[in-house]
């Protein structure tokens, strides 16, 4: 992958939003944000109710994903352009999710909803109607999804990148600071994990930094290019943002997102946890 294949600019979207075969999709943490105004023609995906199983903690299965996209009017050969708030956290999560189920053409709008709003570009309230399709998903691609046992085994062996803020990494905060802090799990991070906050990969306006800056960022953080990499955060959405940078923009081969992330790891009985600003030892 490369920047040209994975990322589109706001100007490009403005020019192509009426094209056949382009489907704009808004995905937000605040799922009401779409209703207040969205890019013309964009449909909405609710990550809490539509992308997650409503009983178990897991994703919707292949059949449910197929039913969802068919209902939304997305075809297998459509180019899906994702954008959202929170500097594209949840849009990057959805990007990773579409890749997990094998969708070919997915792109992320650079800067997401924030850049679009700060540029003063048009938002509309009209909800588009799309004809139903018959979408076929592939089996989940586990080469991009890490599970807990693999993460425990990766301590001291693979690159582990904790993309949360320094205060969450050190155990001083339990969640991003726009959320209440009281949580059941332990604070801290996985031993040997480097802390490269997702935000270091983005400019203030939410657009991604240049490939050169990004490569230097992870090099400075001690990323060993000869090793496989697992990124994690609190619930797997900010680490999707970093997974996108490493895999889709910089083209590193074996990069996985650990969607269980700290809310799973920090609740496991008996696993090692490190407090403080240093990565710690295996």
């Amino acid at each position: 992958m490369s920047r040209e294949n994975a990322l589109v600019s706001a100007a490009w979207v403005e020019e192509h939003l009426d094209d056949d075969g382009i489907v704009l999709v808004e995905v937000d943490e605040d799922t009401t944000s779409y209703d207040g105004g969205h890019i013309k023609g964009a449909i909405k995906l609710d990550w809490t109710t539509e992308l997650q199983d409503q009983v178990r903690r897991d994703f919707v299965n292949k059949q449910q994903f197929e039913a969802l996209l068919s209902e939304k009017g997305v075809s297998n050969d459509d180019t899906v352009v994702l954008y959202g708030g929170n500097n594209n956290w949840f849009a990057a999560y959805a990007y990773w999710y579409f890749k997990l189920y094998g969708h070919e053409n997915v792109k992320l709008l650079d800067g997401g909803r924030k850049k679009w709003e700060l540029d003063g570009r048009e938002l509309v309230q009209e909800v588009p109607t799309r004809e139903k399709t018959s979408y076929t998903a592939k089996e989940q691609d586990h080469s991009i999804r890490a599970f807990r046992d693999e993460v425990v085994e990766a301590i001291g062996v693979k690159n582990l990148i904790d993309v949360r803020s320094p205060d969450e990494f050190a155990g001083r905060l339990m969640a991003p600071a726009h959320l209440p802090q009281e949580q059941a799990q332990r604070a801290g991070h996985i031993p040997t994990a480097g802390n490269v906050p997702w935000s270091k990969a983005a400019n203030d306006d939410g657009t991604f930094k240049s490939d050169e800056e990004l490569r230097q960022l992870y090099k400075d953080a001690g990323l060993d290019e000869s090793k496989d990499t697992i990124a994690y955060c609190r619930i797997g959405e900010r680490s999707s943002h970093t997974w996108f940078v490493l895999k889709e923009l910089l083209g590193y081969e074996n990069v996985k997102n650990y969607d269980g992330s700290w809310t799973e790891y920090g609740s496991l009985v008996g696993v090692p946890v490190v407090l403080g600003d240093e990565p710690g030892n295996a």
Binding site: G36, N86, E117, P166, D167, A175, A177, H178, Q181, P197
Partner: peptide, 30 residues
């Protein structure tokens, strides 16, 4: 719309919220 970013004592980004329709924002900081 406006966006409010919360930066820690080293200037590092910690959180960001869009303002509400009434211009308001809130953080749960340390």
């Amino acid at each position: 719309p406006a966006y409010v970013r919360l930066l820690d004592r080293s200037g590092e980004f910690t959180a960001e919220v869009p303002t509400s329709a009434t211009g308001q924002f809130r953080f749960f900081a340390a």
